[in-house]
């Protein structure tokens, strides 16, 4: 398990060098995108930003406008499994190299990570202040018609920490923990 510093946009080789259990420290641009964004892209609308080599952050931040400037008040990850119906195609079509979220994703996304070279990065759910501390600027926003939590926020982050829980080699920590916990709980049945 290694600590790997990466800068966005990221190349495929760097992504394929990561393994489940590695901690990644990210610096650069992150784009938020959650349910409504994925649904809209999946139904054929082109994203308003170039996602090539970038990371999508499953996050609906608390944003407040102060002196005409957006300020991020809280920004932890949201549950990623809701993007499972869309994520594979979004990775394939827009060449994103990773998603940050919580709770992990399913087999379709895992297959996309392997085939196209991407990783799933797990931030700590609920830790909205620790995450927000790494967000140094809010550089813009698109698709505000979806409402603030669902919009595409352009964040500039420094040393945003996340753990690789699904890698580009077909390995998923979530799959492993599920199988193990299932067996243990079966044995503990009343």
């Amino acid at each position: 398990m290694a600590l790997v510093k990466v800068t966005t946009p990221i190349d495929e080789e760097t992504i394929r060098s990561l393994h489940v259990g590695d901690t990644v420290s990210i610096t650069g641009r992150l784009y938020t995108g959650r349910d409504a964004v994925h649904h809209r892209i999946h139904t054929g609308t082109k994203p308003p930003v170039d996602l090539e080599g970038h990371i999508i952050y499953h996050c609906g931040p608390v944003m407040v406008k102060e002196n005409d400037q957006w300020v991020c008040k809280a920004a932890g990850p949201t549950t990623s499994s809701r993007e499972e119906p869309y994520q594979h195609e979004v990775i394939r079509d827009y060449h994103i190299r990773g998603v940050i979220g919580k709770g992990g994703m399913g087999e379709k996304t895992l297959a996309a990570c392997k085939q196209y070279g991407a990783v799933y990065l797990h931030a700590i759910g609920g830790a909205a202040q620790v995450c927000a501390n790494s967000i140094k600027r809010v550089d813009g926003v698109d698709w505000m018609d979806l409402g603030s939590p669902e919009a595409i926020w352009h964040l500039w982050v420094e040393d945003f920490m996340a753990i690789v829980t699904m890698d580009a080699h077909g390995k998923s920590l979530h799959q492993q923990v599920f199988e193990e916990s299932k067996a243990r709980l079966e044995a503990l049945r009343a």
Partner: peptide, 23 residues
């Protein structure tokens, strides 16, 4: 690590009077 980050987050939210979680 997760519980350490959670502990830090609890302190930051309290000290800065900001939401513990964005949701």
């Amino acid at each position: 690590v997760a519980l350490d980050v959670i502990g830090c987050n609890i302190g930051l939210a309290r000290d800065n009077s900001l939401p513990l979680c964005q949701d």
